[in-house]
């Protein structure tokens, strides 16, 4: 292995790894927000029930 990579080479690898990281973090965020909204909905329903 000569061990030197030219600048600009393999740029697609860089973009793909950033895109996959964004995808992973984005998916996690989606899951976390989804979880919150379902917890909120459940809590609201129960509080409405209790209030009546």
């Amino acid at each position: 292995m000569s061990g030197v990579i030219e600048p600009g080479a393999y740029m697609e690898f860089v973009w793909i790894s950033y895109a996959l990281t964004a995808l992973g973090v984005g998916g996690l965020l989606f899951f976390i927000l989804q979880e919150r909204s379902s917890a909120k909905r459940h809590l609201k329903r129960e509080e409405d029930e209790a209030g009546e």
């Binding site: 990579i5 600048p7 790894s17 950033y18 990281t21």
Partner: peptide, 16 residues
């Protein structure tokens, strides 16, 4: 700047 040995691939380090 790009890395002397790894060129632009060093940028993967910043998420890895």
């Amino acid at each position: 700047p790009v890395d002397r040995f790894q060129g632009d691939t060093i940028r993967i380090m910043y998420v890895h």
